[in-house]
Design a protein around this nucleic acid. Structure first.
Lengths: 160, 160
DNA sequence: GAAAAACGCTTAACAAAGCAATTAAAAGGG
DNA sequence: CCCTTTTAATTGCTTTGTTAAGCGTTTTTC
């Protein structure tokens, strides 16, 4: 596991008193938490033919319906250049289709295909099990609290 | 900001009832939260001569003292192959030194140098300010709660 | 209504991540 | 001991992240 050794107060070293313990650094804490959670998810995705990024694209499209690439990129936490390449691959795989918006021909609207939906269907149960196991180990109460706090944080710093 | 549109219950689409809203998917929520937080941090690092990964390496070494690469990789959330390449660069920059462990010559022990410490010193105050601003906007209470929950989560799934 | 600015997406170039395979050293088992 | 297995780190190859520039389209401004 992630062993941070004897951590009381400022642990050892810590030549810089203004720097917090890494476990109390929000960016690092978020990253570690994600690594912790992603293990079983990656195993699941390994059997699905899509990687982490493509999975997020499918999830977001399933949730939000047809989207232009900018919105899709933001919601899937992908940069536009990456998304361009990923969508080209996904189009080739038949997971999504693209069409230029007739009202604004700069925009291209991405739609999930039946095959894309099928990828989600095929692994929805397993994904759900993974989450349930984690929730059971971590505590349902705390899981909901954590998700609430994360949602709030995502809202806080980007006032709409 | 990250506009998830009208999200009541399962929002629209959502052909797969076993899949949760993406904002309630822990991997996605953690990723979005991190993206939200990293903006000002990246600005700070831009003036520091080290990138995000190298900054994490310095932070972890400062906190934990000299470490072998496997431990360092785990604590800094880097894969061993990535770390190998990053450390080569950091050695060239004079930020760290490496020495093979005499007791186990497979291991190489990484130590932060004075120059590495200096990078931390030079930006510790700014890093602290960034955190304080975010904490003020988000709420100190909630920030501590969030960090507690994240620490617990990282422990939960990797029972030591 | 034409020039200028802004926008949405793509491309290009290079660093970094991810994954599989490889090397070198240590541990185990007969 | 030797042989096999495990472990720590590195290398190779492909995909992704990042930044800047480019190209068509729309909006602004005068």
């Amino acid at each position: 596991m992630l062993d941070l050794g004897p951590v009381i107060g400022q642990s050892r070293g810590m030549t810089h008193p203004t720097l917090r313990r890494t476990a109390r650094s929000l960016p690092i804490a978020l990253l570690r938490a994600r690594e912790t959670v992603m293990g079983p998810v990656r195993e699941m995705l390994a059997t699905s033919g899509v990687n982490e990024q493509k999975w997020r694209v499918l999830r977001v499209l399933d949730e939000g319906g047809a989207l232009d690439q900018s919105l899709l990129a933001e919601r899937a936490c992908l940069q536009l250049p990456s998304l361009t390449r990923i969508l080209r691959a996904m189009e080739d795989q038949g997971l999504v289709t693209r069409a230029t918006d007739p009202d604004d021909r700069r925009r291209s609207i991405v739609t999930i295909s039946a095959a894309g939906e099928a990828v989600l269907s095929d692994h929805a149960a397993e994904a759900s099990e993974i989450f349930d196991r984690l929730e059971a180990a971590y505590g349902r109460e705390r899981m909901n609290q954590l998700l609430d706090l994360l949602e709030d944080l995502t809202r806080t710093d980007k006032p709409g």
